[in-house]
């Protein structure tokens, strides 16, 4: 009985451990003040921030390309932010990130219904079109790509970040 219990306990720990190791980091809610925290936590490091959404056609095409970029460029910090406004999307969002190879990047999902305020904190001129990519250099300079990014442009920017280091 004892052995059986120990066995079940061991199995439970194994399952828990496996799911913890295999499980992607949970999506973080992106709320008021999150943008400044993202900027602070990546200050001094070249960082690519990608805004996307599960209902956006061009995003579906771009996301796996970004997954490959992440794999090829460990020197670049990558942050994704799901800016779709459809509610209860965490499962679909995570599933698309997993399929795109972006399970282990720092992934956010808009967690405040007052999206005008969230967008205003990021860029007062942004009206919510996605995909959108912000390239933040070591010195904090931000270049924004509206619409789908060309991976060649990301490669070029990435190379510049290495050469200026």
């Amino acid at each position: 009985m004892r052995r059986r219990f120990a066995g079940i306990l061991g199995l439970s720990i194994l399952i828990a451990s496996a799911s913890a190791l295999g499980a992607p980091a949970a999506l973080k809610p992106f709320e008021r003040g999150s943008w400044q925290r993202v900027l602070r936590s990546h200050a001094g490091r070249p960082t690519l921030v990608h805004f996307w959404g599960v209902t956006c056609g061009p995003c579906k095409i771009e996301l796996p390309l970004l997954g490959q970029f992440v794999k090829d460029h460990p020197e670049i910090d990558v942050v994704t932010i799901s800016a779709d406004l459809v509610p209860n999307l965490s499962a679909a969002t995570q599933s698309m990130l997993d399929k795109a190879g972006l399970s282990s990047t720092e992934n956010f999902i808009f967690g405040d219904g007052f999206v005008e305020r969230l967008r205003f904190e990021i860029d007062p001129a942004w009206q919510g079109d996605i995909p959108r990519t912000m390239l933040i250099s070591r010195d904090g300079t931000i270049a924004t790509i509206e619409g789908s990014a060309e991976i060649t442009d990301l490669e070029k920017w990435s190379a510049e970040q290495i050469s200026t280091h």
Binding site: G53, C56, P58, Q127, G128, D129, I130
Partner: peptide
């Protein structure tokens, strides 16, 4: 010229 969803 943009390949995106303007949602607007």
């Amino acid at each position: 010229k943009i390949n995106a969803c303007p949602h607007h």
